[in-house]
Design a protein around this nucleic acid. Structure first.
Lengths: 340, 340
DNA sequence: TATATTTTTGTAATCGATTGCACTAATTTA
DNA sequence: TAAATTAGTGCAATCGATTACAAAAATATA
C-alpha cells in the first residue's frame, strides 16, 4: 500500500533538489542548518526510510556479512554466530547464514553467491573435507575480508580466530594425570583435520612432559558420535591392559564411553576418568556431569567480528592477516574429579 | 584487484548493446540463438558475475529473507532456522538472522532495519514480552510477507506455523495417565504466553477427559530453568498430598525436578513419572532419559518457508493468511515409562 | 558600490541491470 | 517485386542515493 518515500518525494515537497536532501540527511557540512532541519523534519513527517539497496549499489557496501558453517544448529556454531551477530549488529551489519553440510561443493557455491551478493565480509569454519583452497582465495581476489574461525586453512592474507587446540588437549591430559591417571587413551577425530591433530599433539606432549610413554594403541580415531564412543570402549577393553582414563575429542564419544563403561560395571571417576571436548550443553546436565574443554564460542564469534571490523575500517591497503588464538577452558566435573 | 565485470564490459567487447547482453543472459526469447551463445560464452570467459544489488534495486527484490528469534543459539530456534535455510536456499534466497534477546524494543528495531534492507520476507518468533503488534503490522503495510513460527500474534493477513501446543499438553498428560498416574502436577510457563497457556489447557482437558479433577495447587508457574524445577518440587512436596507425576512445559525444569526428586530418594518412574517439553538434545542423553514433547523444529522451519514461497509466488493480490498447525510428537523415555 | 570570497544549492553523471518503445533487418505473403 | 509480418537490436529511461563540478546566493573586503 504505502508507496516508499524517496529523497525525490522530499525534494519535490520542499522544492529543493534531491542532492540537497541527500546531503542534509547525511549531515554534510555544506548544508545550511536551516535547510538541514527542514529536511530532517520533513523526512520524519513523511516517514522516509533510506533505501539501503540504492545506497549499497552506489557505495559498493551492503552492510551484510556472510557466515559459512557446516550446520547452524550445532550448539558450537550457533553460539559463534550469536557472538558475531551481537558484535556486528551495533555497527549496522546484518548476518547472512549459510550451511555447507560438511561438503566442499556447497562451500564453493556459498562463497560464490555470497561474493555475488556483495557481502562486506565472510566468516567461515571450513568443512571437514575441504582440502583445496582456491574457492576461498576468490574472496581475497575480490578484496572481501574473510575470517576463519575454529576450522581454518592456511591462506596468506586471511585472518583466523581459533582456540588453542593443542593447549586444550594438553590441559585435559594434564588434568587427568593430576587425578592420578597413568594409562590415558585418546579418542581423536580425523587427524587430517587440523583441530583434531592439534588436540592429539597436546595429548602426546602432556604425556611426555610427565614421563608417560604414549601407547600407539591408546590413540583411536573415533567419530563424534555416541555410538562410536561405545564401540571404541569395546575395542579398547579387548586387550588386557586397560586404560584408566579417556580423553575424547568429542563430548558425544565421551558420553558413549561413559555409558559403555557403566554398562561394564566400571566406576567413574574411581576406575576410569573421562574428559570430553567442546563443553556441549548436555555435559553439565548429566547425572554424572562430564568434564570438558570449553571453546568459548561466543567470545570466538565476537573476536572474529572485531578482526573483521579492524580490517574493514583500517587502511584497506595494509591488509595483514591476523591470527588470534584463544585459550580453551577446562570445566572440571564429576566424570574426572576424584577429589570430590 | 580483479575489477568486477559488468554487462557493459561484455557489450563493449562484442560491440553490441548492453540491453542485448542483458537479454541474452536472461534467456529472453527475442534474442537470436547465435547472439545468445556468443554472449554466454564471452560472459563465462570474462568471468562475469551478475551484480545482485543492481538487479535488486531494479526489481525491488533482494532474495534475502530475515529471521527474527529471541536467541539463535537456542537449540529449537537454530533448528527452525536450519529448516528455513535448507528450504529456501535452493530457491536462491539468503537468510539474515536477528536476535531480540526477548526484548520488544529490539524486535521493533529489527523489523525496521529488515524492511529497510528490503528483505523479501520475514520469519519471526515473537519475544515473550511482546504485547502490542503495531511494529509487526508495518511489514504488512509494506507488503512484505511475514510468517510467524512457534510464537505468534493474531494479526489479520499474517500466516503462522506453530505446533499444536494444546495437543502436546494433552498427549503428555494422557501418556502419564496411561502410566497409572493420577495426581499429575504441571509446570507451566508464563500463562500470558499463548504456547504455555495452550499446553496448560491441554493438560487440563486430558485430566477432565479421564475423570480427574485438576488441583489448582498442582499448576505451578515455573521458569524454564533447572533451578526453578528444583524449587518447584520443593514447594510441591511441602504438602501432604504429593503428585505422582510432573508434566513440565520446559525440559530444563523437568531436569531440575528429576534431580531434586532423586535427591529426596524418590524413584523415577516408579514413584513419580516426569515428562518435559521441547525434546532438547540433552533429554535423550541422560542416564535416565527424559520423556519429552518434540516440536519438530526442522519441519516447522521448512513449512514456514513453504508458506512464504506460496505467498511470494502466488497471486500477490489474493493474500490470505494461512495457519499451519503441526502435530507434536511425544518421545517416551525412561523418566515416564513404567512398562520397561 | 564593485569585486572577491565563502556558503549553499543545483545539474548531471554514476553505480549495474532491466525493459518499453522504436527501429532495422530478415522473412513471409500477396 | 512490393507490402506486410516477424525477428532481432538499440536507445534511453528507470530503480534511489551519492557526489564532482558548476552555478547561484550570501557575505566579506576593498
Amino acid at each position: 500500500m504505502a508507496e516508499k518515500v524517496t529523497i525525490y518525494d522530499i525534494s519535490k515537497k520542499l522544492k529543493i533538489s534531491a542532492a540537497t536532501v541527500s546531503r542534509a540527511l547525511n549531515d554534510n557540512p555544506k548544508i545550511s542548518a536551516k535547510t538541514r532541519e527542514l529536511v530532517l523534519k520533513t523526512a520524519a513527517e513523511m516517514n522516509y526510510k533510506q533505501n539501503r539497496l540504492a545506497q549499497a549499489l552506489k557505495s559498493g557496501r551492503t552492510n551484510n556479512v556472510g557466515v559459512i558453517v557446516p550446520y547452524i544448529n550445532r550448539s558450537f556454531f550457533s553460539s559463534v554466530i550469536r557472538g558475531i551477530e551481537e558484535e556486528l549488529s551495533p555497527h549496522g551489519y546484518h548476518v547472512i547464514i549459510c550451511q555447507t553440510h560438511e561438503d566442499v561443493n556447497n562451500e564453493i557455491k556459498q562463497i560464490d553467491t555470497l561474493l555475488n551478493t556483495q557481502v562486506d565480509g565472510i566468516f567461515m569454519s571450513v568443512a571437514k573435507t575441504t582440502q583445496d583452497t582456491s574457492h576461498i582465495k576468490k574472496a581475497l581476489a575480490e578484496n572481501t575480508p574473510l575470517v576463519f574461525f575454529d576450522r581454518k586453512k592456511e591462506v596468506k592474507g586471511l585472518s583466523s580466530v581459533v582456540i588453542d587446540d593443542f593447549r586444550g588437549g594438553y590441559l585435559a591430559t594434564e588434568h587427568l594425570i593430576k587425578q592420578g591417571c597413568k594409562k590415558i587413551a585418546h579418542f581423536s577425530g580425523d587427524l587430517n583435520v587440523e583441530i583434531y591433530k592439534n588436540r592429539h599433539q597436546g595429548y602426546l606432549k602432556a604425556l611426555k612432559d610427565n614421563g608417560i610413554t604414549p601407547l600407539k594403541r591408546f590413540s583411536l580415531q573415533v567419530n563424534s558420535k555416541l555410538e562410536s564412543g561405545i564401540s571404541a570402549i569395546k575395542d579398547l577393553w579387548e586387550f588386557d591392559e586397560k586404560p584408566d582414563a579417556i580423553f575424547s575429542s568429542s563430548d558425544y564419544a565421551a558420553l558413549g564411553a561413559i555409558q559403555e563403561l557403566k554398562q561394564m560395571g566400571i566406576k567413574i571417576p574411581k576406575d576410569v576418568c573421562v574428559v570430553g571436548f567442546s563443553n556441549e550443553p548436555f555435559t553439565k546436565y548429566m547425572e554424572l556431569p562430564i568434564t570438558s574443554v570449553d571453546q568459548t564460542p561466543l567470545e570466538m564469534g565476537k573476536i572474529a567480528a572485531q578482526v573483521f571490523l579492524e580490517q574493514i575500517e583500517g587502511s584497506q591497503t595494509l591488509t595483514v592477516e591476523k591470527e588470534v588464538i584463544l585459550a580453551p577452558k577446562l570445566f572440571v566435573r564429576n566424570s574426572s574429579n576424584r577429589k570430590l
